[in-house]
Design a protein around this nucleic acid. Structure first.
Lengths: 141, 141
DNA sequence: CCCCTATCTTAGACATAGTCCAATCTTGGA
DNA sequence: TCCAAGATTGGACTATGTCTAAGATAGGGG
């Protein structure tokens, strides 16, 4: 699979040094099971490009989400995390103790009962579902 | 069903005017489909008790969640909403346009494929699942 | 009924995550 | 090489939530 950097070039994005380092943060760690906060990304990007600003990191991550190249993930704290695994439909497993996040494929897509949906919100059309499975990972049990 | 106020007394909580007013915010609106933010609650509580402080509202809501009398709901913005419907297992329907939230019963409990969970997070034990169904309500289509 | 103390409430400072803006700089096509 | 569109910047600003130390109060024991 192409790297994030390559896909951005393919979209015709102007390739600045800032965007290159931000994309590389996700390239180097690999596409699986990465859920960095914006400030995590800023910290890692700044290791390669010390003068990069927080505003640029926030702007760029937001643009990557809009372009569908990153997924914004929320697990109940107030922080947005960014997940480069946009090519496989998946949900998230969250350890209640250590807050580790894992990508997981739900075997059964959650389906809301149609009659119930129409009872509580007549005319509502469901387009997608996000699931957070909560539990404990091996190390925290 | 008992009101929230009554249940708190049953738990042996000291009943201050502040707690009474906060509980009544949830009592008056009814138990279904209420998802107020802390500042919403503060505003409504202050209508009855103008000198109530934000800190008290935040503390009290947190204690009610810890006691299992309110549910803290997160739908992807950075705000915690408080849901008094703790007696029926349910998930949430979120309108992408107007951000209305509805309680809904998922007919099929989402179940992660056991083999996949063990592949990505060996030893992980799932204890619960939160689902947010995203879509559009009748008025926003 | 009143007092005492454990508990609750308070104002405001602080923390965190994210947004916005006007000035400046840079990329990449002509 | 030049230049305009677009990207980046620092820092002020907003929103949501947390913390602290001082003062107030509920409600049980006497």
């Amino acid at each position: 699979m192409e790297t994030l950097s390559e896909r951005l070039i393919g979209r015709g994005w102007r390739m600045t040094s800032q965007r290159r380092v931000i994309a590389r943060v996700f390239d180097v760690v690999g596409a699986q099971h990465i859920h960095l906060t914006a400030d995590d990304v800023h910290e890692r990007a700044a290791a390669a490009l010390p003068e990069i600003s927080r505003a640029t990191v926030y702007n760029t991550l937001g643009e990557m989400v809009d372009a569908g190249e990153l997924l914004a993930v929320h697990v109940g704290d107030r922080v947005t995390r960014y997940d480069p695994n946009v090519h496989e439909q998946h949900h998230h497993l969250l350890c209640a103790v250590c807050s580790s996040i894992f990508d997981v494929h739900a075997a059964v897509l959650p389906v809301a009962d149609a009659a119930d949906v129409q009872a509580v919100a007549p005319g509502f059309v469901i387009e997608s579902a996000d699931v957070i499975f909560r539990g404990r990972c091996a190390g925290c049990r």
